[in-house]
Structure formats: C-alpha cells, structure tokens
Simulated assay, not measured.
Amino acid sequence: MSEESDKTRMLGDIRIDRVLESEEPEFPIFSFFPDAMVEALAPHRSWMEPRFLEPGTDKIIAAVQSYVVRTKHHTILIDTCVGNHKQRRFWPAWNMRESERYLKGLADIGVSVEQIDFVMCTHLHTDHVGWNTRLMNGQWVPTFPNARYIFAKDEFAFWEELNKKGAKYSDGCINDSVLPVVAAGQADLVSSDFSLDDNLWIEPTPGHTPGHISIRLSSCGCDGVLTGDVMHSPIQCTFPDWGVAGDGDKDLARQTRKKFLDRYAETSTRILTSHFPSPSAGFIRRAGEAFKFVFDGET
C-alpha cells in the first residue's frame, strides 16, 4: 500500500487524511488491558507480533493521530493528539513534547491551521485534545484561530466539574487544552443528536468517558465512522470484554464496544480507528462468536 493510500482515502466525495503525531510501541499489554490473560493471548501472538505487539516487550503498537475530513462544505479536524510543551505526568513519553511532525503533517496534505473550520474531539483525554492549543508568548491559545471547537456537552460538563477538584484528574489537559478554547469564545457545546451537516454527525459511544462520541460520515452512498476510543487495538475485536485501564466506566465501555462491533460487522461501513497502526482503517467482520478487523487492502 502506498504512502498516499495509507494516509489518504476517499469516502464518496469526502477526503479523509490521517495526520500522525506518533506510531510506536506504547503500553505494556497486560497493564493496558487489565482483563488480558497470558494464556488467552498466546494463540494470537502469531498475528499480533510484530505489527500490533512488540516482541520481547509486549508493548502495544499504537498510533496517536488526527483525521482531517474535507467535505464539500467544511474542513474538519477530528481529535488533536498530545501536543507540544504540555506537562504530562501520567505517561512520560507524552511529557513536554517538542516535535514539528504534527504541524508538518497538516502542511503536507495542504491544510494550514487557518483553514480548519471545525475541530471535533471524540472525548477530552490528553491524547485527543493536545493540539487544541499551542503556547504563544507564554499563553495557551487556540491552534486553529478560525475554527469552532465542538465538544459534547455531557463530556465537557463531566471534566469541567472534575477539574474543579484538581488538574491531577485530567493530567492538566483541561486547563491547557480545553478551557483556553472556551475562554477564547471558540467552543460550542452540543447535544447527542448534533449534526454538522448532511455528511457528518455524532454517535454517542459512552463508557471510555461519560460523554464519549464517535463521528459518523456519509457521502454518495458510502458510510464511515471514526471510532475515538471505543477500541484501542485489533485484539479487542477478538476479545471485546478486554477493557483498557483508562476506561471510566468499564462495564458500560464493554457494552458499547460489543454493540458497536455487532452494529457494523459484515457491513460496508469503513471503520477509522484512533489508535490502530497503519493503515488504521478497515472493516469489522464476524469470526465465530467474536469479531476480527480487516484492514483496508487486506482480505
């Protein structure tokens, strides 16, 4: 698969580009998935390693990325990764990053920060809001000066209230990556039935966080969905019960993931994931009583 087809795809007349901040071994699988068992994983190492799981370290290969969605109406940025100059104690690899890769990635697909019309965050975790803002003259300011930032009302309300107890609960990302957008007057809080236009609307997928959403796309008879953190690795198609350590409501997250997999299995809806390695997109198929993820270009 070429670099262009790996990161750029068409869904009807919608152009979708992935913009990578990182793709590397990130989290030890047995701590990231507390429900995972050595014996259960063993038969699946043959397809997991080395593409999805680093041999020897048992670290999950994970992407941190955004999607740029260009419709006939708008240019929309979905999720904004970790960002630069952000103090992050929960995961040292994300602390005080200084990289030009992300903004260069936008430039490489012909998009400037001024051309983004909307920024939509599937949820307000650190690795999905970081480039909402950047540091200029000692102040956090919106990275995308002409954009409206779309936050799910329930998601924002939860984190706003929790943040009053201390930034430690959000690892500081609400203070440096969300509230400055609100202060700048660029935030819109939307309900669960929000639709941006005839090409894009939100689908509530709660559990990982209280107001977590996925993003539905449709154009010319073609359908897609950007998952957010409904899933983090293809192994969760095989084991939908495996939640991640960061799930806020583990039981609800499991229910949501199973419903999501069942809803889209054996359909033509393209699934665009937040953290699966390249090419990150594909289709859900049934595999006995469970599921499997078939990546674009594979059978």
Rank of each mutant, 00 (worst) to 15 (best):
R148H: 10
R148M: 10
I150T: 11
I150F: 10
F151E: 03
F151S: 04
A152H: 14
K153Y: 06
E155N: 03
E155V: 09
E155L: 07
F156K: 02
F156R: 05
F158T: 14
F158V: 12
W159F: 15
E160D: 13
E161S: 10
E161G: 01
E161K: 15
L162R: 14
N163Y: 01
N163T: 01
K164H: 11
K165I: 03
Y169I: 13
S170I: 02
C173T: 09
I174H: 13
I174N: 00
D176A: 09
S177K: 02
V178G: 04
P180S: 04
V181W: 08
V182F: 09
A183N: 09
A184R: 02
G185T: 10
Q186P: 01
Q186E: 05
Q186S: 11
V190R: 02
S192T: 06
S192Y: 12
D193H: 06
D193T: 09
S195Q: 13
L196F: 05
L196T: 07
D197M: 05
D198K: 11
D198I: 03
D198Q: 12
N199C: 12
L200Y: 01
I202C: 06
E203P: 00
T205K: 01
G207Q: 06
T209I: 04
T209K: 08
P210R: 14
S214P: 02
I215P: 00
R216A: 09
L217G: 04
L217N: 02
S218Y: 09
S218N: 13
S218I: 10
C220G: 15
C222G: 01
C222D: 14
V225H: 01
L226Q: 01
T227N: 04
T227Y: 02
G228C: 07
D229W: 00
V230W: 00
H232M: 12
H232E: 11
S233F: 07
S233A: 14
S233W: 04
S233T: 14
P234I: 13
I235F: 08
F239S: 06
F239N: 03
P240W: 07
D241L: 07
D241V: 07
G243Q: 09
G243V: 13
V244F: 03
A245Y: 11
D247S: 14
G248C: 07
D249I: 08
K250W: 08
D251N: 12
D251C: 00
L252I: 10
R257E: 05
R257S: 05
K259A: 12
F260S: 04
F260A: 06
L261Y: 15
L261P: 05
Y264R: 11
Y264S: 10
E266C: 10
E266A: 09
S268P: 01
S268Q: 15
R270A: 11
T273I: 09
T273G: 02
H275P: 08
H275L: 05
F276C: 05
P279D: 04
S280N: 13
G282W: 06
G282E: 06
F283Y: 15
A287S: 15
G288A: 06
E289C: 03
